[in-house]
Amino acid sequence: MPAPKSWVIAPPKKTLVVGVADMTASNDPGAELVTYSLGSCLGIAIYDPVKKVGGLLHVMLPTSTIDPDKAVRSPFMFVDTGVPRLFRAVSGLGGDSNRFVVKVAGGAKMMDAKDIFSIGHRNDQKLKEILDRAGYTVHVRDVGGLAYRTMRMSMANGQVTIQSPGNPPYTL
């Protein structure tokens, strides 16, 4: 007789934290990628459901031309230098770019009449431009608003959960 499911104790999850201006790719199905403090920053998760490989990127600003030196030292700070590296890293782990599922969260917006401080919106625009050019579409997104978000991706199935303060987590 097979043991009831409740008897099976899941192995402890390995949590890989992705900092601000940082990226992690993984092929460990037991791992979970997490990034905290997504405000106007964007979290971009990609996942190949067949190979079970994926990556999570936390970018802060749209374009690296503002500070080319910084972009060399910290390419994951910017959408334009971070996104191509994320795709390459996950492909490098055996992911097939034709199967990538792309999920995006963050881009909160401050109340600015002149829209200069809407970095979240500019990040989102830049991401769209880059993905369009490469022929990718965003599968699902939770972008904008006034909330600060935590974004997690399970490497077992690519499920992404979002949590903002005072709210229960939900599946994106």
Binding site: V20, S37, G39, S40, M110, M111, I116
Partner: peptide, 26 residues
Amino acid sequence: DCLAHLAGGAPGWGSYAVRVCTPVVE
């Protein structure tokens, strides 16, 4: 306050409901 929000987030609910002062920006 604005820069700290943009460079690393701000905790708490509705934390981005902060009005940027246009005369200062100008």
